[in-house]
């Protein structure tokens, strides 16, 4: 049986044609597959690229480049990314935290966010006419910071309270955070401390911006009666219309400090505030750039 079956099967062979067709097919497949790795990589590379771009984009979006500190009594800080969008809101005191929780500002443009915040139910009750609102913009790119400051300020024209808009940089913010204050408030605290070294950050934490501002003004007035020589060279408050000693220039000339008085020394920033309501802003600017020892 074995022999008969073997002989029968022996005659069944693959024809040369069948072999050739198979060879051709394999050659074709080989060619197709040799091109394939490169082509197959295209979609993979595309998705990788998208992923990387997405990650970079997300990273950029989530990287803060500026901070806006809003202080009345509620004390809040908005972090802003390079696309001018708010990516974080943090309260620095109880009222601030409450407001931060109540108003959703994330992903808003910063100027809209500040407007929305000031008009919100959480904040508006604090905005009586005698309230003092400090809005401080911190950005390491000076030009952008200044542009943001102006933008924010323009949005606060209708605010019933007195608004001060100032600009600073990230160092200010860091120092402020170390002291547990938003940097707008920290700046006011620095101002106050310069006049009254006994004041501590904790004291300031519990004070409204109006209280701090009034205290500063009081101290300035007191100081105004004395000759210059405080050595602090603050030169503040001109915008408030107080007597400024012009100590910033170290001239000891008891000028009527209209803010412009300091300009000669520190005017490089050119913070000219136009809106009468916002006079206070010059304080801040004068402060920041005009700290000349007397």
């Amino acid at each position: 049986m074995r022999n008969r079956i073997q002989t029968a099967f022996d005659s069944v062979q693959a024809s040369p044609e069948l072999k050739n067709k198979t060879r051709d097919f394999l050659a074709h497949e080989r060619q197709r597959r040799s091109v394939r790795p490169v082509r197959a990589l295209v979609p993979a590379l595309c998705s990788l690229l998208l992923l990387v771009l997405g990650a970079v984009g997300w990273g950029l979006y989530q990287t803060p480049v500026a901070a806006i500190s809003v202080d009345i009594n509620p004390s809040l800080e908005l972090t802003v990314n390079r696309f001018d969008r708010v990516i974080g809101v943090k309260g620095f005191n109880e009222d601030g935290e409450a407001a931060a929780a109540q108003v959703d500002l994330i992903n808003m443009r910063y100027d809209e966010a500040v407007e929305t915040l000031l008009q919100s139910e959480a904040i508006s009750p604090y905005l009586s006419e005698d309230a003092f609102v400090s809005i401080a913009v911190a950005c390491d790119e000076q030009e952008k910071g200044e542009a943001m400051r102006q933008q924010v300020q323009a949005g606060t024209v209708e605010c019933p309270a007195e608004v001060s808009c100032t600009a600073g940089n990230s160092e200010d913010v860091e120092q402020a955070h170390e002291a547990g204050l938003s940097f707008g408030k920290y700046r006011a605290f620095e101002e106050l401390q310069a006049l009254d070294p006994s004041v501590t950050a904790e004291d300031v934490q519990g004070m409204t911006m109006r209280e701090i501002r009034d205290r500063i003004n009081e101290l300035l007035e007191e100081a105004g009666e004395e000759p210059s020589g405080q050595g602090q060279g603050q030169g503040q408050g001109s915008g408030q219309g107080q007597q400024s000693q012009g100590t910033g220039q170290g001239s000891g000339q008891g000028q009527q400090g209209q803010g412009s008085g300091q300009g000669s020394g520190q005017g490089s920033k050119g913070e000219g505030n136009s809106s009468g309501k916002n006079q206070g802003s010059q304080n801040g600017d004068g402060n920041q750039y005009g700290r000349n020892p007397g």
């Binding site: 099967f9 069944v12 062979q13 693959a14 069948l18 072999k19 067709k21 198979t22 097919f25 394999l26 497949e29």
Partner: peptide, 28 residues
């Protein structure tokens, strides 16, 4: 091995075209 494959194909398949398919599948 073409002859071996061809013989097994013959056991199962009914025509040349199918055998060709199997040849391609197997050798691929």
């Amino acid at each position: 091995y073409a002859d071996t494959v061809r013989k097994i194909c013959m056991l199962h398949l009914k025509n040349e075209a199918d055998t060709e398919d199997i040849f391609q599948t197997v050798f691929l």
